[in-house]
Amino acid sequence: MTDTITSPVAPVAPRGRDDLPRGAATQRLRTLASGSVLGLVPFTAYIVLFLGLPTVIALVTGFFDGDGAFTLSYLAALGNPVVLTTFGNSLWLSALTAVIGALVGAVFCYALIGAKPTGALRSVVDAASGVLAQFGGVMLAFAFVATIGIQGMITVFLKNTFGIDIFADGVWLYDTPGLILPYIYFQVPLMIITFSPALESLKPQWAEATAMLGGGTLSYWRHVGVPVLLPSFFGCLLLLFANAFSSFATAAALTSQGSQIVPLQIRGALTSETVLGQQNLAGSLALGMIVVMIVVMSLYSLLMRRAARWQR
């Protein structure tokens, strides 16, 4: 463990190799190579300890009870109606916000075609997208409480100006429907980040070729642009789905009680002090999440490989 922290570079350096005669170049290469394998050790150890081990523990705890005996009962809990409802909530929330986010984001990406890559517009959009998509979390929950909370700016404005009470049927902001707007708010920027490289790969020559064959802008999009971009689009859609499905901070900050979506249910299971063996329930929930994530991300990488065909 200490090794990973204090001496990560040292094993990389094979000392005293410089005085070898020139003819021994191949031999020297070989010894260098064997020495430099050691250089991979610190990072590998770190990954095993802080990525591999936690993941394995998370997946395995679901198969054991509080005393360490093997059991399938927590796995069976995945079939529990409450858990199934939560998974259902997570899935439709992720799907809905992914579709809306992907469509809106794609329109925005379209608007950026032809903008100077180093121009002010691009830099501001890139940085703002990065902030909202990746680092918002808790802060986005605050933003939506300030916007459409009970005393939020838009809530008050609608009530005072048009007499519309958006919470006439009860306050939905702190329940699953309340997550839709904040989620879209970070899905659209993620779409912009992930989808705009695909649009940049559209070559100007293709537009020229279309023109030369007598086509217009519409036929360019119908026969060239859309078919080329479709795999990327669906790939990004899946990434957005995965992003919403695994997102925790916004929901946690917004809904202080209840477990409407899977990550919140894991929190409930982890922090529960009353029910014994809840840690293991968290494990089986984590397993369920990972299965969904693996399916989604495998499809994603398949689609991206298909998309890469046109990005050379």
Binding site: L53, V56, A58, T61, P263, Q279, M297
Partner: peptide
């Protein structure tokens, strides 16, 4: 693959295994 893996493993899943670690 390893470096991009944390995208697939949600932080909330990681934390279940990080607690014992």
């Amino acid at each position: 693959f390893v470096c991009l893996l944390p995208i697939t493993i949600p932080a909330i899943v990681l934390v279940v295994g990080l607690a014992p670690v």
